[in-house]
Nucleic acid binder design. Sequence first.
RNA 1: GGGAGAUUAGCUCAGCUGGUUCAGAGCAUCUGCCUUACAAGCAGAGGGUCACAGGUUCGAACCCUGUAUCUCCCA
Length: 887
Amino acid sequence: MEIAKTYNSALAERTWYQYWLDNKFFKSTPDHRTPYTIVIPPPNVTGVLHMGHMLNNTIQDVLIRRARMLGFNACWVPGTDHASIATEAKVVAHLKENGIQKSDLSREDFLKHAWDWKEKYGGIILEQLKKLGASCDWDRTRFTMEKDLSEAVIDVFIDLYNKGHIYRGVRMVNWDPEGLTAVSDEEVIHKEAQSKLVYVKYQIEGTNDFITIATTRPETIMGDTAVCVNPADERYTHLKGKNVIVPVVNRVVPVIFDDYVDKDFGTGTLKVTPAHDINDFNLGQRHKLQTIDVLTQDGKISEAAGAYVGMDRFACRKQIIKDLEEKGLVSKIEEIKNKVGYSERTNAVIEPRLSMQWFLKMETVSKPALENVLNGEIKLIPDKFINTYKHWMENVHDWCISRQLWWGQRIPAWYDNQGNTVICKTKEEAITLLKSKNPEVNINVVKQDEDVLDTWFSSWLWPITVFDPDVIRKGKENANDDLKYYYPTNDLVTAPEILFFWVARMAIAGYEWMGEKPFTNVYLTGIVRDKLGRKMSKSLGNSPDPLDLIEKYGADGVRVGMLLCSPAGNDLMFDESYCEQGRNFANKVWNAFRLIKGFEVASVAQNGVEVLQTEAQKAAISWFDNKLSEQLEIINDHYSKYRMSDALMATYKLVWDDFCAWYLEAIKPEFIDGKAQPIDSATFNITISYLESLLKIMHPWMPFITEEIWHLLKERDAKDCIIVAEWPKTKTNLDKKKLAEFEVSKELVAMVRNVRAQKQLSPKEKLEVIERSNATRSYFDNTIIKLANLSAFSYTKEKVEGAFSFQIKTTEFYIPLAINLNKEEEIERLTKELEYNKGFLKSVQIKLSNEKFVANAKPEVIAVERKKESDALSKIKSIEEQLSVLN
RNA sequence: GGGAGAUUAGCUCAGCUGGUUCAGAGCAUCUGCCUUACAAGCAGAGGGUCACAGGUUCGAACCCUGUAUCUCCCA
């Protein structure tokens, strides 16, 4: 059979993914085994795969595949999030393109469009995940807005309301004037902006004096209902009891005194606009000020302003500055840097706005979620996030859970025409409940709240409702078998950006309704950035399309590339060259397979002469046997600490360096007369088994190529797939001495190769090496002969003159060379080495002659220093001998 | 403004309780090789004042104090 020289990823990926699906290897149902569960962070239903997803899901897939091989009942639950604001924004934009305004549609019609949109684009991202190799149990795919899950959300709202945790009130919210909805604190992104700090003069009533107020928001002047100064500020004590006149609208407002004002910022005076700033709102509450809302919900100047009505807020800002300047009321304008909040979804500048919203009181419900992270019941990886988490949870604000949108779960609050409110599931129930308050009530006057719930108010239930959406109603004692078996899940892999949005809230929900954590480990990935450190984004155009990368480098190559550069919790500077490295690795593995597959196995029956295992092969096998086990132990340890890139790098080196560069080179049969010699069956079989072990270890990272080779290696039963193969075991009795001994042998081989390079000798030319020692042979001699291409490797007790010499540790080696050594060059080389060793010896001796060191240092440390000293001394002696011969 | 973290080779990062596993890895670079598994490769080599300044210690990349720069979170 002809095997291609390079690995063809596309074909293998198609074949094996389908094969895994057909054989239901991803499927999980409760059984006697221990479960290992991951729920996917549900991507937006209409989203497309980006690099962040790639990273996230590759890590999850690595974890789930390894768990499967370790014998756990591995279950990875996929699904999508309805993402109310993001999806609604997309639908609105789409309708707009077709000349339809959302405002022209009824709620029902709009939702029809939205569902159509979801049907059309929903789940594309899940198909993309399959290309990556994600081994999710697709039969379990969930969507946060499917009927059952939505019902659970309503159950939760009612439950929390009944427990007294939910209230409705007028509060200052983060208003998105483009999305026309309130958004939570977490959905506001604060960015540094260059702003104008305008110094505006307000006349003091009944005088010709002015006080100057610094503001970045002059367009809200019409909403000013006071001017505030710090009571400790002596510059303004004379204003006690005075009023000032607000420019533009000529409103007379009081001067109030409050500690809140920073004396050193601007002029130390503050215009108070309770409708448009949270701090001003608080001041307004304290000082019983009037609240004048001068902006409309879409960010224009409102009727209430009495001036500039209908003008956009930013246009008005410019205009008002101009007008005030003309009136001579601007004393100066400063450029300052401040933070401006932007909507995460629409990127509109957030407007603090007073509105009636629903809130969840966080104080009580969030307690267990904090405690159990602090006590280690839930682990954050890396743990540096615990501090951040703690800080947030201790200062948690009530959660604004209502959104002025249609796409989402509608709030189950019902109102009559007399100001009564009830919370329940259906209109019928509502009428019954309202009857007790208002006997006149009838179906025509009962109206449901127009708002829907925040998306996170449904996704915080994800680890529960994907298994049993009815559990909220039934109570946890009556959970179904799935939930009982899979909950709590094991690992959650997500981005630190949503630690509070999602992770903290899932923890809250877990304790609230299951009385138990939703997951044990939270692995926080970094943000994928480009190599300049910029966040990858569509607008910057710096994000490669993951599917293009997969096409170019293969899914395995991309997976390896992603994880090579992803330390836990740190952002990763992604560069395509990592994928190239991943692809090259896959190709290396492919070629190792080609080599092994190409071996001709000796058969006694065929040629009558038994081919025996050589000493070189025997030694190499015994070394690799230990090496494999040693490295597997290290890899397992990295996994246990969630050090993914370390685990991958250890795997990479085990395969490339230890297996390919050393082991295969050592056991590879020689060519005689241009013909490859056959290999004995013992060496062949064990080599196959090593390759199988390595394929297993590589499988979580590179599922496709490993499955492909697994099957090309042997005829196998239909179900004998690497995806369900058993993870290799480590030896209990590692031969550390042999491992150490081979390290020295490697050094010797490298030295010989180095000599060849230096003396420009062909690798084909056989050399002789003589070791100066009392020994007569050692274990790896024949392996060394093979690897370094030696004609002989012998021992002598005497110094060999006229040969090239070098040292490893304290042992001297000689290579007799046919060509003459350049005497000057040798002297120079040896002199340099001598200098170095003398310097080294000196530093060690200084240390040893230091009484305090000898008195204080641990005995082991001192012993080590003494060994260094004696080694250096013998090395110096030997170099000096060599030099004396040359001279 | 408050908090958290970082700064080690050209790049991305390891480096645990201070001491031979201590200055390391991968990539990149340079030199030589198309050596019948692999040029997506092989062999070899070079490259760091561990951000800066002090301090503690017999001994500091590691502990302490400042300084600088960067990143993130919160207001």
